[in-house]
Amino acid sequence: MRRVKYFPEVMEIEAYVYTAGPVGTKWLEALKAGKLMAAYCPKCGRLFLPPKMYCPYDFEEVKELREIAPVGVVESYTVIERDFNGEPLKEKRVLAFIKFPGVEGGLIHYVKADKPRIGMRVRPKWRDERRGLVTDIEYFEEA
């Protein structure tokens, strides 16, 4: 007996629309204005990224953001050479985890550098047209 072996399924949802929460929204608005901010916990005094309305360390409410110096340090990086299926990328991309002095956490983002290294100081390259997304920073470049 013959069989139909496969049956296709596509999730056809057009789009999800994610909101960033009261603190996250302020953060995105700051990005749109070309400013880098971090969440500030009034209880433990920590600054942290990415921002949330609660402090991940002590579970207290967070309402405030504070502007931070937009100079970060590369904590780790990778040069992505191939896509998930093993095909070589047209252009290698450097993905990094970037920390900011005095701030817990940090940002995962692209770095434009020929020879990235751990400990490298980087600053954001802002896009001219910004929408309030983490990609308003096009990439980080050596400071």
Binding site: Y16, Y18, A20, G24, L28, P50, E75, S76, Y77, T78, I80, R82, D83, F84, L89, R93, L95, A96, F97, L107, I108, H109, Y110, I118, L133, V134, T135
Partner: peptide, 27 residues
């Protein structure tokens, strides 16, 4: 991945996140 802080980056290869851990550990 987080819809606000990571998803917009459109990382072409999910293994890259493991690579970041690999380098941090190896270093």
């Amino acid at each position: 991945t987080d819809p606000i802080s990571i998803r917009p980056l459109d990382i072409g290869n999910a293994h890259a996140l493991a690579a970041l851990e690999a380098r941090a550990y190896m270093h």
